[in-house]
Design a protein around this nucleic acid. Structure first.
Lengths: 233, 233
DNA sequence: CTCCTCCAATTGGTTGGACCACTGGACCTT
DNA sequence: AAGGTCCAGTGGTCCAACCAATTGGAGGAG
């Protein structure tokens, strides 16, 4: 039981809860990826209702500090629960172009390789990913995972361990840019269309078309007018 | 009754509510300062629980898009409920130094004038403001209002309509910088100490000391390492 | 008639408890 | 060992109250 978790006084309850959570993370030495205590337990220890705890959770989620997994718990996305300073955001934005360059180079090649080497199983995996994305969109979700899944399927089909490994290194950054991109209204559906074009070319066994389709897809990811704040939500 | 407010489907409810609110603001042509419908009414019209509406409210509040007034309603802080783009944040940050210059010039002079002209009533008002700030800090609040109140009391004591008017013009920007400054851990208490120094000099009738104390106070407001995101919260 | 006081309706703030949906691991079946 | 099933844990949402701040108007004082 941490010293930093004890009953609290009134005003703006959810803010105080958030503040306590910040302290708790520091005190317990929690880091990105670690799980926060369950909401009910927090409510008990802080002597507030779960409603208030959840408001704090929402606040932290909107700030991109934690990730909420239905049925799985709440997880830290950073080492501290402090709002990300502007500089960091900016530097991330500045790095975006070069990340996209690298991604473009790798994925374009991977797509064309996939068009040459894909097996029936690969095509099935790609279709499954597309289906997952379609239903996610219908449910109004961001479908970050589904998007990633599609690209993973293409990478698998390409059978290029080196390029796959390279993409693995880029994955962290890519996921972030992906998220920001998908947050744009209508973007998920648009992204799906582009995925389908890529899949079509791969199925047709047309390397050039696959490369071209993937190229324009990656390019369009860069057209994030101005990344809004919340990386998640 | 707006077309944009009608029942909605499932996942991530509070996000959908927030999205609907965004639409509603556009549809109704609401602008900064306008009031949103009451939470209970929103819950009814969207066919969602008030709990979910409140989560959306928290999300929007954290993003600095709305202001919540206990018992008074929820108000728009901008013309649209879109997260503020980086550019805007940056330009605001770039303007901060010049705003502080102006503030420094005016408030330094006001403090010295206050030291010369303050009446017993002025001193009482200043003390009251300090007391309010103390208790606000004890309650763990940001005490933006209390901070403002103190400066208002000093301005009143200075009896300089022109300078007071000038400060009035700056007030909007000042409040924002104040907020960002006070968000820093330990900052409110620090600020209180500086206020007390200023008050002391004014009480002593020492214009030079008052000016100096106010000067260093205003300067320290500029030492916002890196304004965090949430303008409120 | 004007102004002030005071109260009640309105509106946000918080709670406790209930129930649903998803996840992950224990455990059983094959 | 592989697979499927089940269930406890955990997030998601709702509801019905009650508390607290604000606001505006009724009603009284001047």
């Amino acid at each position: 039981m941490s010293e930093s978790l004890r009953p609290l006084a009134r005003p703006r309850l959810y803010e105080q809860v958030a503040a306590r959570l910040r302290e708790h993370v520091v005190d317990q030495g929690l880091r990105a990826g670690d799980r926060l205590p369950p909401e009910r337990e927090l409510a008990d220890r802080l002597e507030v209702s779960r409603t208030s705890v959840r408001q704090a959770i929402v606040a932290l989620e909107v700030q991109g500090l934690i990730e909420v997994r239905h049925g799985g718990g709440n997880y830290l996305l950073r080492d501290r629960l402090e709002a990300e300073p502007l500089e960091s955001l900016l530097s991330r934005k500045r790095r975006l172009p070069e990340i996209l360059e690298a991604r473009d180079a790798a994925e374009t090649k991977l797509a064309s390789l996939a068009a040459e080497r894909r097996t029936a199983a690969d095509l099935a995996a790609i279709d499954t990913a597309l289906d997952a994305m379609r239903s996610a969109i219908e449910r109004g979700e961001l479908c970050v995972d589904e998007d990633e899944r599609f690209h993973g399927a293409v990478i698998a089909a390409a059978r290029s361990p080196l390029l796959a490994d390279f993409m693995g290194h880029l994955s962290r950054e890519i996921t972030e840019s992906r998220r920001e991109s998908l947050r744009q209204p209508g973007r998920p559906a648009n992204s799906l269309l582009q995925h389908e074009k890529v899949a079509e070319a791969i199925r047709a066994g047309d390397p050039a078309a696959a490369a071209e389709a993937m190229h324009s897809h990656v390019q369009s990811v860069g057209d994030v007018k101005l990344l809004n704040w919340a990386p998640d939500a």
